[in-house]
Amino acid sequence: MKTIALISTTGGAGRTTLTSALAVLLARRGRPVAAADLDPQNMLGAHLGLDSFAQVGLGQAMAGRVEPWRDHTWRNADGVLFAPHGETTLAERTEYESRLAAKPRWLTDALAQIDFPPRGVVLIDTARFPSQQAAQAIAAADLVLCATPLEPAACATLARRFARLHQSAARVKVVVNRLNPARDMQRDALALLRAAVGNALELVHRVHFDAAVPESLARGGWIFDDVPHSQASHDLHGLANWLDAWLDGDLADSAEPAP
């Protein structure tokens, strides 16, 4: 079983949308998939099919108030096993951040309790980097995907924090999300991002902007089902294919998907 952490250095990067979409696409490729939500926004469960926000989940488990955490997992129609974050108070979040700092392998040990076959994969949606949640996700991950929109502020933030991120993670790939080639500003932002990331860590993939993405989610669907021939659908399938091959060990570390 391998673990993939999806992180971002800014809010609004589309990290939860990517996590849930990739979980479903990998499950549809016949791979056992679990997803864990370490973000207090508690949105992953809603993306994966819950009709209301889960009240109890990993947030309470991290605070030491729920044991075992596996009693608060769900499975969606595509077979994805997922653990929502749950609705937490400020006091609970303060408590679990302190516990996570004292137990840097808490998530690694928790994921080891999942009885998954070798082909299985766990996707982790976490609070923005740097944070205790992101540190736990990175420590548990075999691969880190850092999602960023091509907005100047987001790219500048990633550039400022990239060295620390690189030191923290074994493998890091950047996913450019909501790419809009019609915006000249994004070309400048992409140049800034490439200068910060460097040749050693090329961009793994780009997912184009599509207004149908939030519309599909609002209807409880997926863009790759509703608009299967759109560029964003093609991009998500391409990223899922790349991950599927990487999980099977068919790609070298430096390999990149076709544009």
Rank of each mutant, 00 (worst) to 15 (best):
N177E: 05
V175H: 12
V172D: 07
A182K: 09
A218L: 08
H208I: 07
W222C: 05
N199W: 04
N177Y: 02
L165N: 14
A212G: 13
L165F: 12
N180P: 00
A182S: 11
L190T: 09
V204R: 04
M185H: 08
A195P: 01
A195V: 00
R178Y: 01
G221I: 02
V213N: 09
R194S: 03
A196H: 01
H208S: 15
L192E: 02
L217W: 02
D188A: 12
A218R: 11
F209G: 06
L203S: 00
V204W: 00
R219Y: 07
V175Y: 11
M185C: 06
R206W: 04
Q186W: 05
F209M: 08
A191K: 14
A195N: 13
A211W: 09
L217E: 13
G198K: 04
G198A: 09
G221N: 13
D210R: 03
A182N: 11
P181C: 14
G198M: 01
V172Q: 09
V213M: 05
V174W: 07
G198T: 02
I223Y: 00
L165S: 15
A169L: 12
A169T: 11
A170T: 13
G221F: 03
Q167W: 05
V207D: 06
M185W: 06
R219M: 12
D184M: 05
G220Y: 05
V213C: 07
V213L: 08
A212M: 09
I223H: 03
A211I: 12
Q167K: 11
R164D: 15
F224R: 03
R206D: 04
N199P: 03
F224E: 10
S168I: 02
G220T: 05
